[in-house]
Design a protein around this nucleic acid. Structure first.
Length: 512
RNA sequence: GGUCCGUUCGUCUAGGGGUUAGGACGCAUCCCUUUCACGGAUGAAACACGGGUUCGAUUCCCGUACGGACUACCA
């Protein structure tokens, strides 16, 4: 009988959720759904000093925006709660004490000054790795060196202490990683990590083992930065006697900066002008802020697809996947080992693809909102017209509006470069004749009519249309590039086009 | 420094003892379009290096180089 697949995403609420964390959440989600399992969210808030107000809500909103919804979370608890470690505080000590009793952990009373002194001493003695371990603990103040009654006395007096794991001197720790295969580490390189802090809170190492066990986690899918402490975790499972239900591990490759080396940081985004966080973030207290993919108008389905492909691929040549298709195709075996550079150009391409896949009605709402910020009220007909004019040519929804602003606001100024290059006597001749015709025009002025009429006008003057189209565009829109001109003419209407042409002829310098 | 992990076009990657080393993004050129895009076509572009093993290695093994993560009473 096999257990139900249960995975968790366990961020700590210390600030905005990094995009790498989002990918970790995504992979956990995909793996759970693929295997008809459960995806849980657990808040790792055991560091009270680093707790940032609003961070939890940020995590929740980010996941919601992307549709990576946890089956169980602090806000939607299952029956293995609490889902916030701080709320489980009282339990952890019992587990730590259990380890002390079994001889796998011990009390330590060293002050931070004493710890510092120890490190200095070791460094001076040219010890390569100054750490609290099987050798150095014999010289420190702990329940292994102090007489039993003194330990009791110190404990009774309320003196601050921590509980450390007792790492064996010579032992080989072997564990399997689903991405990297077998990993072997010798305990002589491990140190006696703190399990319980002096404030009564557990460290990550203790808390994550206890919680994963109690929450029935079957697979731990997390970032590569945890790989070095995985041997400790394996040891803890063994000391607790939970080897039978120890989860499988999968350590994900890191997200790297686009240029140079090293992991992707907020600075990289700021430097190169792209977001590194899902949502905008603003901390009123510290004043730090960050821009988000959502506010930069990346579509959630595009971000999701992009992120999924950073370190994973389906093995065939498909690139575009909905969330459901990702679930269907996902497998841990196909996750790569090497870190992936964060290439925003690809993200933009995905955004274009998904933008074009959205319905015009849907996109029209975007356009209406964007116009509102410019204090322009658009009805849905006009907005949809703008959408069909532009959706094939923009990366972000907001650009649909910025590219069409001139529809509402007639140009007062003209692009000088285009004017000096393309504004010529032929163009003026055709345009004034065209405007003349338009002012007398009656009937339906659609893009076909607009085009035919313009063609006829040019023919009569024996001027090639191709030579003057840029100038025509300039006269009516003020710039040299944009959506299909004849469609624009149709939207503007004959009278408005005529007016604009006349304004342009009056205000642009008269060509030779 | 130590431990662990990694290395195929500029980027994301497929592949895997014998291949013209495949795709996508980006880039370039051309076609379509009496404008601008979309689209289509084509092109340039990669197995880090050195040793083995082998008839044959980009693929397996070992080194080297380079890169990364970790090395807290942070997660």
């Amino acid at each position: 009988m096999s257990r139900e697949i249960r995975v968790r995403f366990a961020p700590s609420p210390t600030g905005p959720l990094h995009i790498g964390g989002v990918r970790t959440a995504l992979y956990n989600y995909l793996f759970a759904k693929k295997n008809q399992g459960k995806f849980l969210l657990r808040i790792e808030d055991t560091d009270q000093a680093r707790y940032v107000a609003g961070a939890e809500e940020y995590i929740r909103e980010s996941l919601e925006w992307l549709g990576i919804t946890p089956d169980e979370s602090p806000w939607n608890p299952g029956n293995v709660g609490p889902y916030r470690q701080s709320e489980r505080k009282a339990d952890y000590m019992q587990y730590a004490l259990d380890l002390v009793e079994k001889g796998h952990a011990y009390y330590a009373f060293d002050t931070s000054e004493e710890l510092e002194a120890m490190r200095e001493r070791l460094t001076a003695a040219r010890v390569v790795q100054p750490q609290y371990n099987s050798i150095t603990r014999t010289q420190m103040k702990n329940s292994l060196t102090l007489p039993e009654d003194e330990v009791k006395a110190r404990l009774a007096s309320g003196e601050p202490y921590v509980i450390r794991v007792k790492i064996p001197r010579k032992e080989e720790v072997r564990f399997h990683d689903q991405i990297r295969g077998w990993v072997m580490v010798h305990t002589s390189t491990l140190d006696d990590k703190v399990l319980m802090k002096s404030d009564g809170m557990p460290t990550y190492h203790l808390a994550n083992i206890v919680d994963d066990h109690r929450m029935g986690i079957t697979h731990v899918i997390r970032g590569e930065e945890w790989l070095p402490s995985a041997p400790l975790h394996v040891l803890l499972y063994k000391y607790f006697g939970w080897e039978d239900t120890m989860p499988e591990f999968a350590h994900l490759p890191l997200l790297l900066k686009p240029d140079g080396n090293g992991k992707l940081s907020k600075r990289d985004g700021d430097r190169m002008g792209f977001p590194v966080f899902p949502l905008d973030w603003k901390n009123e207290e510290t004043g730090d802020s960050a821009m988000g993919f959502r506010e930069q108008e990346y579509l959630p389905e595009a971000l999701l697809n992009f992120l999924a492909f950073l370190g994973w691929n389906p093995g065939d040549e498909r690139e575009l996947f909905t969330k459901e298709e990702l679930v269907e195709a996902f497998s841990i075996e196909r996750i790569g080992k090497a870190g992936a550079k964060f290439d925003i150009a690809k993200a933009k391409w995905y955004n274009e693809q998904y933008l074009r896949a959205r319905s015009n009605a849907d996109l029209a709402d975007f356009v209406i909102e964007a116009a509102k910020k410019d204090e322009v009220e658009l009805d849905s007909n006009k907005a949809e017209a703008i959408v069909s004019l532009t959706k094939e040519r923009v990366t972000f929804p907001g650009e649909m509006w910025t590219q069409c602003r001139f529809l509402v606001n007639a140009p007062k100024e003209f692009d000088e470069q285009v004017a000096s290059k393309k504004w010529n006597a032929d163009a003026v001749a055709v345009l004034s004749a065209y405007a003349e015709k338009l002012s007398k025009f009656e009937g339906t002025y659609d893009s076909e009519v607009a085009k035919t009429l313009l063609g006829e006008t040019a023919d009569e003057l024996e001027i090639k249309l191709g030579k003057i189209m840029q100038a025509v565009r300039l006269a009516v829109t003020g710039v040299g590039a944009g959506p299909d001109l004849m469609e624009i003419f149709a939207i503007l209407g004959a009278g408005e086009v005529a007016n604009r042409i006349q304004f342009a002829i009056k205000n642009l310098p008269r060509p030779e």
